[in-house]
Design a protein around this nucleic acid. Structure first.
Lengths: 343, 343
DNA sequence: CTGAAAGCGCTTACAG
DNA sequence: CTGAAAGCGCTTACAG
């Protein structure tokens, strides 16, 4: 049974056709009014606008997108919407998108490569014009057809896997090196490193920075001082306890990311003698803890901003070779990293 | 000049028509394969799939949505993507959407009512099927045509303004009342309240809870003890200093939300004699501060989950009268709220 | 099992 | 200044 003409379809929403009939004008005239195009007499415009208001018309952008071939939207795939580190990044991406008149569609992969892929491809199917991806997986070849078809893609925080694409990173290697050098400068020589899983690029880089700082200072690195792995509090606490026990306990710890840092703060709280700590990533209230926590800070908002600007450069037609953009980190000394060694 | 047939349009992406031509089958057969519908011989399916892979075809969901009338997506309008309070809420909304096979589109209003409206209507134009809104403004009549047209809408954290709609809230009144009663139980009678702008519903409710607790205990409330307003650190710090000076200084403070709490922790740090503090909203590391901070915690994830489940209930056809759902808060005593008064 | 035709709600290209 | 026709890329309803 076909719907009666008086019953507009599609969730009972009026269409331009309905508005045109109601106002007694042609379809194109309604389109002109809706899109504020020139060439409509004030009187006609008034009449059309009245019909729009009466019927509660709102343009269906699905149809518009289909016809125009542009969606004016970009996608963001992040790792975890609930991780405070990504809040400012997310917001920065949105602001840049907004400045370019684009809507942002985002979602989180929950660190699951399959989910990352599923989400990224769902965004592609909706024809976002560009994609900012914080990778969970390490094989992004699934995006090749999309990129060939003109989808702009920029990776953030971690490099793309097995494809050639723009990536915007913090200087994990240099930041970790400087953070560890800071501990060495304050007299430490037995320094432990507790970081994220080695399959994560940033984790590997930070570990490399740790080794570099130790090597530069001519200090040995015992296997027992290096504990990459899960950032689960139990694993991290266990690793720390092991390093702090034994015959040659460490006198300082370097934490490979914010989650590790927070766990270590708990482990080290009120410990005698105090253990020095420098963490990668700044976090709120780090300055209020006692001792306040010395960190290697990265600028999450800048990561998002630079990546999204790069994306829109490409959308505007720029075709530079894919590039690796590295943003500097900043050491913020607050107290925990300046504690002397207690042998 | 019309494009040559060998040059597919639309950002040079192949369409089902291209796939059909390439595989030597009809359009509908491609559609069947793409959507995994029954009624295609394995051999045909193989051939079509090979063409899909060769051409790098990906279904254009804009066209699909237009034809089907369903977008399988919902929208979330929040206040600030970078505020840690909304991270878990955002994530919870996404998880429920995902469980229902829907994509989440979100954006932040940055506390600007105009921007909230603009964003919400942009999502409507993209025909999201439902909308979860954390209101910035207090007039939501602009959504009336959408809701009449079948758009499910649920408000979270703050009620809708001037329209009748579902809303899911934390018990701001009861939580604040209990938090202040906790201070009173620990001997305080001169208690200050520093909260958010009175135009924000939760701020008003929390202030009401404060007054209720004081009244129940038979305690007077001096005007100088109540300072609603901006949550800018300067304003909050100034208000606190004023309450702590003067002839009848307060011995305890109640903070109306997380931003106020954090500022007050800074203001009160190392202060002698110590000032008791209870804050609305829990925050990470509250337990590591000295003293650890006693808070009235709300369950942000539950707010998002309950709201989104309500949304999908409506999308599934449920038509209950709009309802106000209030979730309980929980007092977490950690130290700062148990400090005795120092007159 | 397979496919041609019609149509979703817009915009484009064109004619009056 | 105004509008009828065609078409964006799919799915629906139908026929073979």
């Amino acid at each position: 049974m076909p719907p009666r003409p008086s019953e507009p379809r599609y969730g009972s929403r009026p269409t331009m056709k309905d508005v045109a009939a109601h106002a007694g004008v042609g379809l194109k005239t309604v389109s002109r009014v809706v899109n504020a195009e020139a060439g409509v007499t004030p009187e006609t415009e008034r009449r059309v606008q009245a019909s729009i208001d009466t019927l509660g018309f709102r343009r269906n952008d699905s149809a518009r997108v289909l016809r125009k071939g542009r969606t004016a939207s970009i996608g963001l795939v992040l790792e975890d919407l609930a991780d405070p580190f990504y809040g400012p990044l997310n917001r920065a991406v949105e602001e840049v998108a907004r400045a370019h008149g684009a809507l942002l569609i985002n979602g989180s992969s929950a660190e699951d490569p399959d989910r990352e892929r599923e989400l990224a491809l769902a965004l592609c199917a909706r024809r976002v014009e560009g994609l900012v991806v914080i990778p969970a997986g390490d094989d992004h070849r699934y995006l090749e057809p999309e990129i060939r078809a003109g989808m702009a893609t920029v990776f953030v925080d971690r490099p793309a896997g097995l494809i050639d694409a723009d990536v915007v990173l913090s200087d994990s290697f240099g930041g970790a090196r400087d953070g560890v050098a800071h501990l060495i400068a304050h007299g430490h020589s037995r320094i432990g490193f507790i970081g994220d899983h080695p399959r994560i690029h940033t984790a590997t880089e930070r570990l490399r920075g740790y080794r570099e700082a130790m090597a530069r200072a001519g200090l040995p690195v015992h296997d027992a001082w290096v504990a990459p792995g899960s950032t689960a509090p139990g694993r991290v606490a266990g690793a720390a306890e092991a390093m702090l026990a034994g015959s040659e306990p460490v006198t300082a710890l370097f934490a490979g990311n914010n989650r590790v840092t927070v766990t270590l703060v708990r482990v080290l709280a009120d410990r005698v003698p105090p253990v020095a700590l420098v963490g990668f990533d700044d976090f709120e209230l780090a300055d209020l803890l006692r001792p306040a926590v010395t960190v290697v800070a990265q600028d999450a908002a800048a990561l998002g901003r630079v990546a999204t600007e790069r994306l829109f450069d490409r959308l505007a037609g720029a075709r530079p070779a894919p590039e690796r953009i590295v943003l500097p980190t900043r050491l913020i000394a607050r107290g925990s990293g300046e504690l002397p060694p207690h042998p």
